[in-house]
Design a binder for these strands. Structure first.
Lengths: 133, 133
DNA sequence: TTAAGTGTATTACATGTTATGATACACTTA
DNA sequence: TAAGTGTATCATAACATGTAATACACTTAA
């Protein structure tokens, strides 16, 4: 249950500071959102994933069920769990999540007394030292 | 324990989704960071705050102790809890926190596949519709 | 000296979330 | 039929959080 575990083409970084199912959910959702997993692709079964991550199947199922609730996956009893084939849904999810992240960020900065000017200045200054993939 | 409670000049918004002591800590820390509470000021006693927020003194003390660990307050046994008189410490705290918030934000956006261009574009577009305090 | 108001510590208890482990059932495919 | 799927349930444990009550040490002011 330490740092990194590889499952197929997916790499997971798990720690004990937060719920495991939440970390699985986030990291798989992000992978789907940024297009790292092809649409319609079958993902590892609950048991397989559980064994690879050294967790209980229940924990993996918890994450899988959340993904299905989000419309990111389709589960077929007896067959497995598959990434949705709806490109539109994935893009919508990505946009909504980005929007939420953005709002949360701005709210926190404003609560610390930073203005729009400050935030943009800070970001552009920071960009100078970083790479731009 | 619902939404808003006023304590002196401070306004608190508490909900049950997250630890109460954490919300008290965050909201007081932000108030200090943005200069809403004068340096050296005495803040409400543990019991007073507990009564006002309808929480147990233990919960308030938990938050107060965290603030002292951060160097934001000084507690004097028998007298009360006071905001630090060190302007430098407050500014340092504000900067460090902003830096952490910024890094977390960028990491999340990058994990969703957004580039620097995207992020800056998104922010500047959003700024158009908002006010700039 | 006394009383009231501080921060602090301890103990016990209740609750909810998280995770595990085991088992069982329903469905699909080969 | 057998193996591999998702799914459900139950018991258990661990942990964080919050409440409640009590006690102690210190400071200040009456």
């Amino acid at each position: 249950m330490l740092d990194e575990r590889q499952v197929g083409s997916l790499r997971f970084r798990l720690d004990l500071s937060r719920p495991i199912y939440e970390q699985i959910l986030e990291q798989m959702s992000s992978a789907i959102a940024r297009g790292d997993i092809p649409l319609g692709e079958k993902i590892p079964s609950v048991r397989e994933m559980a064994q690879a991550l050294r967790v209980t199947p229940n924990t993996v199922m918890h994450a899988y069920q959340e993904m299905e609730r989000e419309g990111l996956t389709e589960t077929r009893r007896g067959q497995g769990t598959f990434i949705t084939t709806s490109q539109e849904r994935v893009e919508q999810f990505r946009t909504e999540l980005a929007h939420r992240v953005m709002e949360e960020f701005l709210q926190k900065m404003k609560s610390l007394g930073y203005s729009w000017e400050d935030i943009l200045k800070y970001l552009q200054a920071k960009r100078g030292g970083d790479s731009d993939p």
